[in-house]
């Protein structure tokens, strides 16, 4: 994995200096040179080269940047990378294995649960987090608990169909 964009050392004052931020991303330890104000989302996309996590609003209002942090779904745009040192981050690139898609990924394809695909990584990471939580009893619960992930293409019913299929299989 490429570590990109190490900023010109001269370009900052000492007190805000770059620090090495160790992040465990998809099972690998990555040391990024970051300033404190770099969000986890930007750290993933611009510094760790993992562009699967998407920026749809940068303000916690769309869910496109959802990743799993120690197994829980969070919004990577509303947290600083430095705040997640040593946490286990899973992004869409770490979902499933090299040889086999995660059941949710398969279900999303089968149910045509996306159109433009931009919200998809966030929807899938969020759905994994939701199934881990184990709080959804039925379709109405799933809809409510997935409402933090917007889909502008209007694939909503297909997304929920895909999640329900996997949820019912794993019970």
């Amino acid at each position: 994995m490429a570590i990109l964009s190490i900023v010109n050392q001269n370009s900052c004052e000492e007190e805000f200096s770059l620090r090495e931020v160790p992040l465990k991303i998809n099972g690998k330890l990555v040391n990024l040179q970051l300033r404190p104000w770099v969000s986890l989302l930007d750290a993933l996309r611009e510094y760790a080269g993992l562009t699967g996590t998407k920026k749809g609003c940068d303000h916690g209002q769309c869910g496109a940047c959802t990743v799993l942090c120690d197994g829980e779904r969070i919004l990577s745009c509303l947290t600083l990378a430095v705040m997640k040192e040593d946490a286990e981050i899973t992004t869409i690139e770490g979902v499933g294995t090299e040889n086999e898609l995660h059941p949710l990924q398969k279900a999303f394809i089968a149910h045509d649960a996306f159109q433009c695909g931009y919200c998809t990584p966030g929807q899938i990471c969020s759905a994994i987090g939701m199934l881990n939580e184990g709080k959804a009893q039925n379709r109405e619960d799933v809809k409510e608990l997935m409402s933090g992930n917007l889909c502008r293409c209007g694939a909503n019913s297909n997304i929920i169909d895909a999640i329900m299929e996997v949820k019912n299989e794993t019970i």
């Binding site: 993992l50 979902v95 990924q105 394809i109 998809t120 990584p121 899938i124």
Partner: peptide, 14 residues
């Protein structure tokens, strides 16, 4: 099913 589906569900779609 969409031929680019795999790329979209894995985050590989750029």
């Amino acid at each position: 099913s969409r031929l680019e589906g795999n790329l979209k569900v894995t985050g590989a779609a750029k």
